[in-house]
Each structure stands twice: as C-alpha cells, then as structure tokens.
Design a binder for these strands. Structure first.
Lengths: 354, 354
DNA sequence: CAGCGCTTCTGTATCGATACAGTACTGGCT
DNA sequence: AGCCAGTACTGTATCGATACAGAAGCGCTG
C-alpha cells in the first residue's frame, strides 16, 4: 500500500524505469539487479505494478467483456448460456485472458454507460436486445466485438460466430408441418420486452427486439407458410424468461382452450421441457396427443426424448473467444456459421386424427 | 478514437475539467453547457471518459475478481460452482458491479502474477489450493477478499462466507457408521494435485492442499474413528476432477476388489452420481448392496434419491457478494457460516449382512 | 586508439482522466 | 456600499505506470 515503482527506485538509487523493467522486461537488466529490486520490493510491501496504471499506459487489459442477457444471475440458470461460457472460458484461459461478466441494466441509457465504462480489450455479445444501443457504444470505443447475433453487423473490428437461426427453425417448422399439424402454438422467450407470459399477437415478427428469437420465429413462419398454415392461425405465446416453470405456464395457454394446439414449438429446450410437464399435468402425452419441439439440444433433451435442433453452445463460445483473441485477417472468416442438425426424437408424431 | 477530454475541451474552448464534469458530475455545470459538450463529443466521435484512466485516477474499477478452480472451463461444468456464480451475480448486478472471472494458471508463480495484475476492487476466492499463494498477493495489494475457505484467514479486509465443512462431513460419516458400515471408501475430488484418479494413501489428511476437500475428509475420519472404524481401513480414492465420469471410474477402484466397500462416501454429488452409475454397471443397487453419499444436494440428487448434505451454493455466492459490496463493520460479521442439513434418501441403507 | 556493437541503465514524455483548490460572477441581505 | 453565499467554471497537481530515445561502460577489432 502506498509503495510505487518510485519508492523502490529511490530505495535502491536506480531509476523508475529500471524497476519497471524488472517486472515487465527481465531481459533488459542484469539478473542480480533484478533480484535485488524484487527483494527490496518484497521488503517494502510493494505488490507489483499497479494494474490500472499499467493498462492505462500500455492500452491492454487482458480481459474480454461479456454482455449477457439483461439478468446476469438468470444467465447462470440457462444451460445453453453456461455451455457458451464454458467454451469462451476455455479459449480465454489458453491466453491468460479474463472474462468480465457485465450485468446490463434494463434502462438503455444505463446499459450504454456501463458498456462505455467497462475496462476491457474486447466484447462478446451474447443475447442482448437490438434496441439498447450497446453495439454502437462498443464501436465508438473502437473495440473489437464478436456477436452471436445479427451477422449483418460485421465491420473491420466486428466478428460473428453463430448458427443460421432461421434455417434451423425452418427445419423444425417443416418437420411439424410434414407431420400434418395445422393447429400450432409457438412459445417464444422474450418475444417482447419485459411483459409477462401470455398470448400475444405479432403481425410483423421481423420487428421483434431480440435477434435470436426473431430469427427463429421467422424460420417457423416461413416453413409453416410453405405448408399453407397461415400465420394468423398460429398461436404465439410470449414467455417471460427461459425457465422451465415459465414454459409450463406458457404451454397452459396453448392447451387450455377449445381448439387445443396439436403441436407446440418452443424456442428453447428449457421451455419445451416445461411444456412437456404441462402436458403431463393434463394427462396428455408428448408425441402422441401433442407434439413438442425444442431448440439447443441440452443434455436433458436426450433423456426426455425431445425433438430439437442440435447446436453446440460450447463450440460457439470457444470459437467466439478464439476469434477475439486471434482476429482473422481474412474478411471472409470474420463471420463463422456453425452447423446445426434437426434431431427427431419421441416428442413429435403425426397430428392426432390423421 | 484518439479523441480525449482535451479534444472536446479545445473544440469548445472550455477546460478539460468541465468536460469531465459533464460526464461524471452533471450538477457541477449548467445543463446547456453540458448538452453542448455532449453534442460536440458525439460529433467528434468521443466515446466518453476512458475507463482505464478513470479508474487509475479514482481508484475504483467496479469489478470483483473471481478466482475459481484451476480450470475455468471446468468450473462451468460443476452445478455447484454455477449456482455460486449465480448468487454472486445476483448480488453484483444490484450494484452495477461486474465479475471478472480469472483463470488461474497451474504454475503458482504465474497464478500470482495473474492475481497481481487483475484490474479489480476486490476478490472472491472460491476453490483454490492453499499452496498457490494468491491470498498473500491479494493482501499485499490491500484489496478486500471473501473466501469460502479457511475461516482462520480473517483480517480487517478479509471475509469468510462458507459452511462448517467438517461438521457436515461428520454427519455423513456418523450416518454411515450408524448403518453398520465398516468397509468404507471415500472418493475425494482433487485430494492431491494434478494426479490421475486412483487409490492413494493419505496418512495425514490435515496436509491436503484443498481446504474444502481436506475438511470434509477430516470430518469423515472423525466420525468413522468415533465408531471404531480405523482410518487405515478406509479406502481413499483420489478423483481428478469433479465430473460424473471421473466418479464412475473412481468408484470402480472401490468396487472391483475382493473386500468390496459397502459404503462409498463421495465429496460431491457429481461424484456420487458417477458412483451410482458404476454400481448399476456392475448389477449392484445403491442403498441395498452398497450405500452411497454425496455432498451439495444438487437438483439431480433428489431425482436419484441420493443421501447428501444440503447446502445452498447460491446463497453462499450471494452472501459473498454482499459482504464484499457492503463490508460489515462489526468484526463478528466478517465470518458467516451458512447452515447445512443431512438429507437422508434412498442411496443409503444398513450394511449388507446386518 | 578510434570505431563499433552490445548490454545495461537513465530520463523524459506520455497514457487520459479526476481531485481539489481557487477564481469570477451573480444576487440577496443588511 | 459591503458582505456573504452560491453557482459555474478553470487550472494545476496527481494517479502509477510504460515507451522510447539516449547515455554510459565495456570488450573487441583493424
């Protein structure tokens, strides 16, 4: 405490630069002097170069800022997000880089302030609403950024690592349509802002605020439309969070009505698992009475036999980290699209009555 | 890029301080001037005060450094760690504080260097071996720290949030002993450094490097000794990681021998679940042929009927965050011990032949 | 012995902001 | 008029390091 490079320098009668070199560039001074300096530093209770000062001068911090869903603590409840972080962490630790998990306030202005003030070298944007303007802040700071979202936003310092959300969703929609389902409900997480769960009407899905959800919805719509299921016939249920309990609740809206849906398409596995619970609670069986699909293929999906889209969030995270830490020079490689597969399991089957 | 406070100040003919105030202390200048400044800043592509410089001068960063297990990516595989982070994140986001997840290199010297260089206001130490010396580095930096580990290390800026590991383990040991088990195997994660999984002999468990594991082992030993099960009769299996597969493998060492253990005590639920798998693979049933216990009470434990110690890692994380963000002045409250309960379920039963 | 290259160390400028003391001006009160 | 308080802004010192150019010392060569 209180001791700085100068303190040590004075104590030994050497220059401040030399003491700095003792820490950061050992090759610039003789081993004896270096060890004398380090000894003195220890004796004086000097903890080594102040990280703040160092990063101010050198312009490097050694940290990647991670922007997750509005609610940081919620992110840790979502298996996909955790897998993504696992991959990101794997890439980061190989380079002695830290991850700064930044909670984004709901208020856009506060969110921008937080992003402006984050002490990082680069950003990784995972599931952030379009409207909050953090991408603009990042680019005005001139920091590199990798997003899993809109691939259009690619600039010289902007990278993209993701999947073809829409195409994957289209596969799901086609699968459901091919099975003959015509009364379809879609459970979408965070379709709209902070509203509570419930049936909503979205005439123009292309305006939805969250990129991922929007693209998936558009994919479902395209596939259903191609099979002559008009969008106006599709029941859209907004889900306030990607939690199982929310999924169960939301599925209720689709099940407890006269013209019960014969298929429930969920934008995530977690929601789908909730929907299956809702079915069970009503004495219905997934795959026979009502078909259910998810998205992500989390480990539990296999256990339950959930039809879903397989993607590797861990790979996604790892690749995102690698792209930031080793920016590809080739512009074509600034945008990486990872593969997905439709995994058909037991929770989907022909529409009843066919 | 390149624009600083001075750039804006020059452009408007005001002083640098005033521009700074426009951002950080709006009450110090007239609203008109402020908005003129902000406009100009926007026009010149100024992204707002440089976070590095700001934190150098003000001495604050707005981030808590989190030191997890050697392997950061591994930490995201462990449900307990994730729950801990969830709690910590909940506390942090309430105060607009970020979490800096710091991968600790295995080499102690490198680990210390990393901790010395982390740009944070405080540290949270979660599962770090005693020997690596990071606590000393933290205290020499004069930063507050909260640990889930050794409660002895409490100083003016050091806090503790944890459970009574040893007492909880004692409960498990007593439970097992009361059921009449005398051939006991213990699966311990990271009993020793980076060794591979296998049977080891530890005459002096009090020297084990990881606090949590050490305390649990000591608790088991005390309880077993009290029931006249000598320590030398206990089979100790080192597990290289808290993974289910590792647990299954490690349990094999206890099962595939002449004097098969009748009880397997695992230092975590994840390992215990692996052990149960190992039993199943050998046609044995947990609770009848071999008793199995875990530690933590992760969600899956209830599903499987695992006897275990219940603790709330999420509460632990949240409390750790709160303690750092609102340091208690009362010295007695610098050390918080959270409650645990022994939850007896189906995987433990009387020793066969009794 | 001048000249060269090498190692080792020094000194100054700089990174980009905030803290704090101080100045100028305004207006109200006695 | 004189004084005080308050607002709005300025100016300098400072936070603690690193970058980079340069100097000193030293051995070697021609």
């Amino acid at each position: 405490m209180g001791a700085t490079l100068q303190t040590i320098a004075d104590a030994l009668g050497v220059s401040r630069s030399t003491v700095s070199n003792a820490y950061s560039r050992p090759d610039q001074l003789s081993p004896e002097l270096r060890s004398r300096i380090l000894d003195t530093a220890r004796r004086l209770g000097y903890a080594g170069p102040n990280p703040n000062a160092r990063s101010l001068r050198s312009g490097k911090v050694g940290a990647i800022g991670v922007l997750l869903t509005a609610n940081l603590s919620l992110a840790f409840s979502d298996p996909c997000t955790v897998a993504f972080l696992r991959g990101l962490a794997a890439a980061a630790e190989r380079r002695e880089t830290s991850l700064l998990l930044i909670p984004l306030p709901k208020d856009p202005e506060a969110a921008q302030r937080v992003v402006r003030g984050a002490v990082v070298d680069a950003f990784c944007v995972y599931f952030v609403p379009d409207w909050c303007g953090v991408l603009e802040v990042i680019s005005s700071r001139g920091l590199p950024v990798v997003g899993g979202e809109d691939p259009e936003l690619i600039g010289p310092d902007q990278f993209h690592v993701g999947i073809d959300e829409r195409a994957a969703a289209r596969e799901v929609g086609t699968h459901i349509a091919n099975l003959g389902h015509r009364r379809v409900a879609i459970l979408g997480h965070w379709l709209v802002g902070n509203r509570t769960s419930g049936i909503i009407q979205v005439d123009a899905p292309e305006d939805l605020p969250y990129f991922v959800t929007r693209e998936r919805i558009l994919g479902y719509r395209e596939a259903l439309a191609a099979a002559d299921v008009p969008w106006s016939d599709v029941l859209l249920v907004n889900v306030a969070g990607s939690h199982r309990a929310e999924g169960e609740l939301a599925a209720g809206f689709a099940l407890d009505r006269g013209d019960r849906a014969t298929a429930i398409i969920a934008t995530s596995d977690v929601l789908a698992l909730g929907a299956i619970q809702a079915l069970a609670a009503r004495g219905l069986r997934a795959g026979r009475d009502v078909s259910v699909t998810g998205f992500d293929d989390i480990p539990e999906a296999a256990a339950v036999g959930l039809t879903t889209i397989r993607q590797s969030s861990e790979d996604r995270g790892r690749l995102a980290g690698e792209v930031l830490l080793d920016p590809p020079t080739d512009p074509d490689r600034r945008c990486r699209v990872l593969p997905t597969t439709l995994v058909v399991r037991a929770t989907t089957g022909p529409a009843p009555g066919l």
